[in-house]
């Protein structure tokens, strides 16, 4: 297998570079100016063994020619200096074990084609030096692999604690307490202490003229009494309607007397108190009665 390299010229800094044939058609970074260069298939391909051959210098390509290829094992002494383009070897991908030709500019003596010993020295110098061509490849070089194996980066990462499970549990707890939280405010209805020890069972006839009476029977139904109004209100909505119609007088009343049957529910009494407060009856009194009707 004969290795193949591509020679290209960086349009930014003007220097010529060699790269693996596998990068043809891709963008590589110039080692001098670090600009990206598109390597076209028409660039020159040079054989490594031409350079490595003893006493044989690689074919010299004039600077103004860009598409040149050398034949394998050819002798530059027997060949004309310029070969026809039709005899060039086609591009092929670089294979494992192939030897890459070093990147060199025209100023390097090894590519001048004038001094074979200088060419050999240049190749040897390139082999001893850090391989700049590796920078053009996408695969990591041997130095990087060495760092991965023996470097301290992995040790540093293992020290860091993974907080993901803690965050997960915290969010689960947060959602649980948010869902189960009860923000209902407990409020109170104020009532003055009863002035008499006796239950107010016989105060029906003490109803004053300027107070609205809400009677709650044992079936939790309301009856609103005020003046000429005597209307039943089975629901809370109707209670509000009847209360508003009852107090719709030139001089609205201020007092509310709730006569609650002994068997009515506590909720209904609170509802009547709340309705009276909403319509503007500020003075609310509650009496317990065991009469079935007014």
């Amino acid at each position: 297998m004969t290795p193949a390299t591509v020679r290209f010229r960086c349009p930014e800094c003007g220097c010529e570079r060699l790269a693996s044939a596998s990068v043809v058609g891709r963008r590589v970074r110039c080692a001098d100016c670090f600009n990206f260069v598109d390597v076209t298939p028409g660039d020159l391909v040079q054989r490594t063994d031409d350079i490595a051959a003893k006493g044989v210098s690689p074919a010299v390509e004039p600077r103004n020619e860009s598409n040149r290829m050398t034949e394998p094992n050819h002798n530059p002494a027997d060949e004309p200096e310029q070969e026809p383009l039709g005899d060039l070897e086609p591009l092929r991908p670089i294979a494992e074990g192939d030897e890459l030709v070093p990147l060199a500019s025209d100023e390097d003596a090894g590519f001048a084609g004038q001094n074979p010993s200088a060419d050999k020295k240049a190749v040897d110098r390139w082999r001893d030096e850090p391989n700049d061509n590796d920078l053009l490849d996408e695969e990591p070089d041997g130095d990087e692999q060495e760092e991965v194996q023996f470097g301290g980066k992995g040790d540093r990462e293992s020290v860091e604690m993974d907080m993901t499970p803690m965050v997960d549990v915290t969010f689960l707890l947060l959602i649980f307490f948010m869902v189960t939280a009860n923000f209902t405010m407990m409020k109170t209805k104020r009532q003055p202490p009863p002035t008499s020890e006796e239950p107010s069972l016989n105060s029906v006839e003490e109803v004053e003229d300027d107070q609205v009476v809400i009677f709650i029977d044992e079936f939790d139904s309301f009856t609103v009494l005020y003046g000429a109004v005597d209307a039943e209100a089975p629901s809370v909505q109707e209670l509000y309607i009847q209360l508003r119609s009852a107090i719709d007088t030139p001089v609205p009343p201020q007092k509310l007397l709730i006569k609650a049957h002994a068997e009515c529910s506590h909720e209904r009494v609170i509802t009547a108190m709340d309705a009276g407060t909403e319509v503007g009856l500020v003075d609310v009194q509650v009496q317990l009665t065991e009469q079935d009707g007014l």
């Binding site: 209902t184 405010m185 407990m186 409020k187 209805k189 104020r190 009532q191 709340d274």
Partner: peptide
């Protein structure tokens, strides 16, 4: 000034 209160839930 001590009063009796009946607890209710805010609607």
């Amino acid at each position: 000034g001590i009063m009796l209160h009946t607890a209710v839930e805010e609607k």
